[in-house]
Amino acid sequence: MTMAAEPLIRLAGVGKVYGNGTLALNGFELTVGRAEFLCLLGASGCGKTTVLRLIAGLGSVSQGRIDWPDGAAPGTAPAGRADIGFVFQEPTLMPWASAFDNVYLPLKLRGISRAAARERVEAMLERVGLAPFANVYPRELSGGMKMRVSIARALITEPSLLLMDEPFAALDEITRGRLNDDLLGLWRGKGWTVLFVTHSVYESVYLATRIAVMCPRPGRIVADLPIEAPYPRREAFRTSTRYNDYCRQVSAALHRAMGEPGP
């Protein structure tokens, strides 16, 4: 297992049993390094979303521990929790609020006034390319634009960890590619860590510094593969032999994960 220098979170022997008796995770081990772009890859229903929700503190672990080697664990204090940004599979915007107000939400909940937040929110909208759409309501935005608003909202608190749950799965190929590039651009500029859940081999290889492959029922990590390709990654990377080799390698790991559901 290749490890980035400084661990940000460590999940040790984490198990999760839901109220209806479903064993979603069992003996789940994962360390996320600081400034990593880690893709969690697996088939639908293998517990990827559960991992993200547990890390975000949106549910309790049934066994094992989630450690934050330095700094308070999210959930111990309201201020600590805001150190995490979450992007859902759906844009999950408030339909009654403009793009500006949706991005402003996390700051508003922290008690920051609209006037004090204005500059920051506008700068963030600018960064995701939505400056002219600040006063537009979600229903008037395209799917890709809504997702950009969702990403801007997650980044407005400048979180040290960004959790993304198949954020681009519902988008068309072209929009998805463009958002992949924009996301990498945003990530490279800052020092934050991304944990990105996807079921697409191609997307994970394009984005990640490291890919953790999950097997289903109960969810566990069965392969951990570093992607050693330099950034910025552009269209040329998608057509390179190295990209294809990685895709083949990751795809094989995914198939192994599906073929042997574990002991």
């Binding site: 979450f86 999950t92 939400l105 909940l109």
Partner: peptide, 19 residues
């Protein structure tokens, strides 16, 4: 999911109701 998001940002019960 919006409820989860409000939880994540440590929103109070009252904030969840009103906003």
């Amino acid at each position: 999911n919006l409820l989860s998001l409000f939880d994540l940002y440590g929103a109070t019960r009252w904030q969840i109701v009103t906003q």
